[in-house]
Every structure is written in structure tokens, then in C-alpha cells.
Amino acid sequence: MADSFLVDYAPIAVFMTIATFVALAAVALSFLLAKHRPDKQKNAPYECGFPPFGDARAKFDVRFYLIAILFIIFDLEIAFLFPWAIVLGDIGWLGFGSMMVFLGVLTVGFIYEWKKGALEWD
């Protein structure tokens, strides 16, 4: 019983295998076929450029965090919409109305963040 529906996921497994293979092949081929002439100058800053290699862990602005939080909230809203869309024919007006109220509440939040300028970068 448990195995039967897993067969439906076989195409996904095929896709993931091919994707892995293509990704590895892209890296491996460019490593094998390309000419390698490492030079210290190639890693040096070009003219007035800044150093090409440094610590990747630069401090982020707090505004990225706000964007991420707002994204999560609307992501969850979408997650609630999936099952609703599937069963909309079965749950009648009550189901439809409860989702409209839910969306309305979140729209209040959306208008608030729009008016507050939380979506604007500068």
C-alpha cells in the first residue's frame, strides 16, 4: 500500500537524477576540457577594482530580514490556498467565505505594509 503511490514519484526521481548528472557534467567538463593557466595576476584586483576574494560573511541590512518575514507570511497564505482550491467544489459557501475572510485579514496587513513603506527599498 505504501509503495503504490510512491510509483507516482518515479518521474521526479528520474528528473532529479538527470539534473544531478547535468550539473555534475557541466562542472566536470569545464574542468577537464578548459585550459588551466593559473596566474597570480588573474586573481589580483584589476586597475582600481576591489579585491576579488574576501570574507563572504558580510553583515546584511535588517531590511532583508523584513522582506524575508513578509515573504514567509504570504508563502503561508499561498500554502492555505492549495487545499482550498482542490476541494472548493465540496465545501460550499462556508468554505469559500472563510477563505475570503482569511484573505481579507491578510489584505489588511498588506495595505498596512504598503502604506508604511515596508515594501520600498529607499
Binding site: 531590511r63 523584513l66 497564505e77 475572510v101 485579514v105 496587513g109 498588506f110 498596512y112 505594509e113 508604511k116
Partner: peptide
């Protein structure tokens, strides 16, 4: 859950904006 999400949204904006 909708109200909780609304609270989270307003809270995040109030704290960081």
C-alpha cells in the same frame, strides 16, 4: 491563524521599519 499571520506581519514591520 490568519490573525496570527497579521500580527506577525505588523510586528515585523513595527520592529524593523
Amino acid at each position: 491563524s490568519g490573525l496570527v499571520l497579521l500580527t506577525a506581519m505588523i510586528g515585523a514591520i513595527a520592529l524593523t521599519q
